[in-house]
Amino acid sequence: MAQGDRSSALDQLRHAASLGIDEAVSLPPRCYRDPAIYELEQREIFGRDWIHIGRACDISEPGDYLAADLPGAAVMAVRQKDGSIKVLSRVCRHRGALVASEGSGHSGVFSCPYHRWTYELDGRLRAAPTMEGNPAFKRENCALPEFRMEIWQGFIFVTLSADAAPLGAALAPLSVMIDKYDIGDWRSAFSVEDVWDTNWKVAFENACESYHHIGFHQHSLDPIWPGLTTQPGKGDEAFNFHVVPSIPDFRYREVEGVTLDDGAMSHFFICGIYPSLTLVLAGPSTIWFSFEPLSVDRVRVRAGQLNPAAYFDAPNLEEMVAGDRAMLVGILEEDKVGCLGVQQGLSMADAASGPLSPLERPIAEFVRYLARRLAA
């Protein structure tokens, strides 16, 4: 993309963000398909903002870790011996090999597979064979770098920026809204992962609005949570949200010890946390969706279900988890197919920004977030 073309796309983004909510339009199609815009996002969004990398309950024991890749950084969240969590680099300080593989695991120490430099759980260098023969070697200068992290409602976030404002403060208004659910200590029932051939913003936007229930999910979600009943709320700079009421007389199954009002026990409360995490609070269950860009038209989609401790005491737990998992996998497959079609359409020469429905207020607010990060 030529510099002039990118400037034109960013001008269109600024214009879209400047419109009132009642006359909002979607992002310029070029924002979903151009490698130069993608590279700008990697630098200005994923290289600077708070990025979700996992759930604290999934690394419960000292030595448990979750690995993740950010622009220019391979990181891992590691449970420490004192119960705290640190986010460390996975790059050996010797010659750059990775000391932990992708995904999750457990280790008492982190040992580089190349020359067996070995690190403590907190990143301090424990052993470096033969390095005492080099007078320039200083063990204390060879610890794995540590990155800023915060835990919000049990979710682990990391930022590569020293200047990012505290995450907890940015999400404080959202914390108040969902306080009654008390999801911070909820446990993971299951998680799934897939790669979609679509831009990450297509996937994230899709997860942030329920208007599309009438299309992608007309036989699955819409009969119980009708998309046309969506109630968008006024979001904040760090998040958007909306509520989807259920049909009359629907109610989630009860879980002992969980006390929620009738609305919370029947509707969806959906919030999109910028740039790439969406939560669906559904009574005694919360579904999360995380979107990791892999290229301009590929995204890794992770999703999982959280539940309070009493959920796991149910005598038919295995059956419940299998049913919940099957439902989520089915919904994700509907979204995957639909988002692929959206990406294909946005890649056409005649694609254009279109007017947004009032039910798509979260998308209009996301456009403004992108403009603040990319086109300020």
Score class of each variant (00 low, 15 high):
residue 276 S to N: 15
residue 215 G to N: 13
residue 260 L to E: 08
residue 314 A to Q: 13
residue 269 F to C: 09
residue 215 G to K: 11
residue 257 G to Y: 03
residue 259 T to F: 11
residue 311 Y to D: 02
residue 253 R to A: 15
residue 250 F to E: 08
residue 242 H to N: 15
residue 245 P to E: 06
residue 292 E to A: 07
residue 251 R to G: 00
residue 221 L to R: 12
residue 311 Y to H: 14
residue 274 Y to N: 07
residue 263 G to K: 09
residue 259 T to Y: 04
residue 266 S to F: 09
residue 243 V to P: 01
residue 261 D to R: 02
residue 237 E to A: 15
residue 239 F to G: 11
residue 315 P to K: 03
residue 265 M to P: 03
residue 315 P to W: 01
residue 248 P to Q: 11
residue 309 A to N: 11
residue 214 I to D: 09
residue 222 D to V: 05
residue 284 P to Y: 00
residue 210 S to W: 03
residue 284 P to G: 10
residue 279 L to H: 15
residue 225 W to K: 02
residue 245 P to T: 10
residue 236 D to S: 08
residue 253 R to N: 12
residue 292 E to K: 12
residue 296 V to R: 02
residue 213 H to C: 13
residue 293 P to R: 10
residue 233 G to H: 14
residue 256 E to N: 04
residue 315 P to R: 12
residue 248 P to S: 10
residue 273 I to W: 06
residue 291 F to E: 05
residue 301 V to R: 09
residue 252 Y to W: 10
residue 240 N to E: 09
residue 287 I to N: 00
residue 232 P to W: 11
residue 239 F to K: 05
residue 209 E to G: 10
residue 220 S to H: 13
residue 257 G to A: 09
residue 268 F to I: 03
residue 264 A to K: 02
residue 242 H to I: 14
residue 270 I to K: 15
residue 275 P to V: 13
residue 231 Q to K: 12
residue 295 S to C: 07
residue 283 G to D: 13
residue 301 V to F: 14
residue 289 F to P: 06
residue 291 F to T: 11
residue 237 E to F: 13
residue 232 P to A: 08
residue 250 F to S: 03
residue 249 D to M: 02
residue 236 D to A: 08
residue 317 L to N: 00
residue 247 I to M: 00
residue 246 S to H: 03
residue 254 E to H: 10
residue 317 L to V: 03
residue 282 A to W: 14
residue 262 D to S: 01
